[in-house]
Write a protein that binds this DNA or RNA. Structure first.
Lengths: 205, 205
DNA sequence: CGCGCCACTTACCAGATGGTAGAGAATGGG
DNA sequence: CCCATTCTCTACCATCTGGTAAGTGGCGCG
């Protein structure tokens, strides 16, 4: 009975890697099956269609992302350190599970209905993040502006910097762990400059 | 003889819209042909293969993007106003030719060899941008940091904000011209805070 | 034993895909 | 008038796609 769950999860994992890497359309069910050493029908046994498989992969990814962010939030005090912790955890994900961020990127590209499912999954996270930003702004730790748009800018920047390897190569940055660390540092500076009210952080809660 | 160029350009245009919208793999040559009211073989007469068509579309897009940015640079003084002009021109593109930014996003996702061609096309632009940032930093108008990474962050943010309509919807921002203007304003604030050394801009050239 | 359920397979299919072969119309130059 | 070139078409094809139908073997349970 462990077997049952085992295959199902292996399918999910392989699909996540392919959908988040080469992409959804670029991946055939045969590809996924071949990589697992099973037949395509085994996949269709667990998931009635390719679209259903994508849905399941989205749910899985959203849950994993949410988990990582929850951990980052829970283990950091409010204020700038929390933002830093969240960005660090996203970069850790970019290193350890690049396919996960790749999938998120891919899904936003695919549009509805996949994108809708993802955003539904992540909505609670967004709500909490917005609340956090509002509180920080109200407390005077952060520049006053529309939290939704700040969230949007920060999201785009973090995902972009963490995933756009090709673009990085274009601007002359070679990928690698050391470069990734430097990028993270640079990005944190960038965000800090953009968000934090100077002189307010040492006194934050 | 005008005829010749005409069909060819219409093919290019239709392909740009499809590749930059639904995506490269999601678009069949028959789709493009149907939208133009010609047969698929007409496309294959001008472009030997789908990949070759993509290459041509990439060149076209890179040229148009470069043109828009050149204009923005030429019509603005150095310093912060130039950055603002560039961001504005990208947003104008996002409104008037969304498929163009979509294509760039798509190509960076596809990876080599398409991505390589795009980055080759845009390399001169990147070099100039880097030079500009270095000069601004040297003049003390901009925070000192690695220009390549600043460029990367700015690119991710601008492209992200200008293209990720789905994500925007997720955080509660409905697309539309008014919303777009607000996003642009917010983004400019964001970038300005992140990049500009306070008090330095009034004295810039 | 034997019945049925679970996990998985082989066999198959209809439709779409990128691409080839080659013919038909229009044009223009000798 | 005829040939050659340019452009576009119809006809066709091998391959791959997601998905269906129909089993097969094993394991637990009465």
């Amino acid at each position: 009975m462990a077997r049952t769950t085992d295959t199902r999860e292996r399918v999910l994992q392989a699909a996540l890697e392919s959908f988040g890497g080469p992409g959804y359309e670029a991946t055939s069910l045969d590809d996924v099956a071949a990589e697992l050493g099973v037949s395509k029908q085994t996949i269709l046994y667990y998931f009635p269609s390719k679209a259903a498989l994508l849905d399941a992969v989205i749910d899985l990814s959203a849950a994993e992302l949410a988990g990582a962010l929850e951990d980052a939030v829970a283990s950091s005090p409010p204020g700038w350190p929390r933002i830093e912790a969240v960005v660090r955890s996203v970069f850790r994900l970019a290193l350890r599970r690049p396919e996960l961020l790749g999938l998120i990127r891919e899904v936003t590209r695919l549009g509805p209905p996949a994108a809708t499912r993802l955003t539904d999954d992540l909505e609670p996270l967004v709500v909490r993040a917005r609340g956090f930003l509002e509180a920080e702004m109200a407390a005077g730790h952060m520049r006053r502006s529309d939290p939704r748009l700040v969230l949007m800018s920060a999201y785009s920047t973090v995902i972009g910097v963490a995933t756009e390897v090709e673009v990085l190569r274009a601007v002359g940055v070679e990928p690698g762990m050391k470069a990734m660390v430097r990028r993270r540092t640079e990005l944190l500076d960038f965000l800090k400059s953009a968000l934090v009210v100077p002189g307010s952080e040492p006194t934050s809660t």
